[in-house]
Design a protein around this nucleic acid. Structure first.
Lengths: 260, 260
DNA sequence: TAGTGGTCTAGACCACGGG
DNA sequence: CCGTGGTCTAGACCACTAC
């Protein structure tokens, strides 16, 4: 009972549950409203808590729910559209672009980053192969939606050798200022699914492993790849937009009511 | 035992497990190689099978593993870069673009689709509000990477009224042919995380609910939105690329060895 | 038929947030 | 402090694949 039975291919309970909950969300709940707790929901639907959680996980993945330990499960607002394409055919760090400088440091690049920069092997011995790593955060509508690591090879910003700015936003600003002196010839972008590293998760106010959209951007000058950015967007709350796309709503119709 | 213990902030077992497995994958396994089964792995690490599965799920989400019921868990090849941007500033259906026509039908649009098309309310009463829905499939390197539903309002392709082509690729071809007669003024794109609907999952050879990247594209003519495409890409195997981005590898360094 | 991953259960304890 | 979601266990059975 509770689920259709005479099916030749019985659908999993959690899948059926997800459908039922999804419809209930559309009809009986307002954005921000708190759902009954997991133990009660499980009892109400006659399933184990783990099964109920499997359904909730799916709904959270689709951006319909938001769960916070110690608080409860709430109905999520529609995903916010975040412009990633057109408006930024320029170096990172333009004023008022929604990004906030967090920190900067100088390290040796990982193999993966070195490969993206394409400078690992054709640099003379003894040359400084360190990169400046700038940490930024993107805020939209009062919420942190992305954490970014920008990698700038020391060779791209020679003016910075022997920089003595202390760690922090000031140092990050200095790196970006130097970068903006170069002539940007083009850029490159890719998007894939990932899970939040511990440090990114902290910035995004999520648990480690939360699903994120990894946006990797390469910035080209005539000399090659001058910088690489790896931005980690919250997959639950964000919809990345390219081109002139504005506030379009897809996937489902949200309620406009908001819980008091 | 098996996990660090004297931590002030003990990390979850599955998280630690994921890290260990991830390193083992880099060092001791080749692409395509089959891992020991879940019950044995769980025993080997001294955890319950559910905990082990939580770690495997994460690794699958990151595109490092591939699991198939009845077969086993194998090491996934690096994600394939799929061009979504530049090369297609034209109507869908260009020859040799990697898309294969599957089917076509004529239906009433859902509320969400109608909103995307922006034609729901400003159409005179009695006008044909049906849309042609064209199903396509994208194949890359012998593998289906995406399933698409293309929505074309009847008003965009008046030449098709009273079409009598049978359901199938032929009918789909007819719709696209009519669409290509219009002048494309621009397009719009957004990417978000979703979970595969049952029908898409079948086309993608995944289970329902599998994580996917939803790419929504709007095609504009001088008259407004002439068509909308909702493409469902496998999130586990695909990296969407925009611009001239080619075969870049991010996130981690794969082994180039391949299992015999 | 044997072995795999997928689903499900009924418990337990823990970490966090707010009164 | 209590209630929440997060983690974990030790089982069970099912659906699928390949032999």
């Amino acid at each position: 009972m509770g689920t259709k039975q005479l099916e030749s291919v019985p659908e999993p309970k959690y899948w059926h549950l997800k459908t039922v909950l999804s419809e209930a969300l559309d009809q009986d709940f307002a954005v921000g409203e708190v759902l009954p707790n997991e133990r009660e929901l499980a009892a109400r639907f006659g399933v184990a808590r783990a099964t109920l959680r499997q359904a909730l996980e799916q709904l959270e993945l689709e951006g319909r729910l938001q769960r916070r330990r110690g608080v409860g499960t709430t109905v999520a607002p529609p995903r916010v559209g975040v412009a990633v394409g057109s408006t930024q055919h320029d170096w990172p760090g333009e004023a008022g672009d929604g990004w906030q400088l967090v920190d900067a440091a100088e390290t040796l690049p990982s193999a993966a980053v070195a490969k993206l920069l394409g400078t690992a092997s054709n640099v003379p011995f003894g040359t400084d192969q360190t990169v400046h790593t700038v940490r930024r955060t993107r805020v939209t509508q009062g919420q942190v939606v992305a954490a970014e690591l920008l990698y700038v090879p020391g060779s791209s910003v020679p003016g910075l050798s022997g920089i003595d700015a202390p760690a922090g936003p000031a140092r990050a600003r200095a790196v970006l200022r130097e970068l903006q002196r170069l002539v940007l010839e083009g850029q490159d972008r890719s998007v894939e699914l990932g899970s939040a590293r511990a440090d990114d998760a902290k910035e995004l106010d999520r648990l480690p492993g939360a699903p994120v959209l990894l946006v990797t951007t390469r910035f080209f000058t005539a000399d090659g790849t001058a910088a690489v950015s790896v931005a980690t967007y919250r997959a639950d709350t964000c919809r990345l937009t390219f081109g002139d796309s504005g506030d379009v709503q897809i996937s489902h119709e949200p309620q406009t009511r908001v819980a008091s």
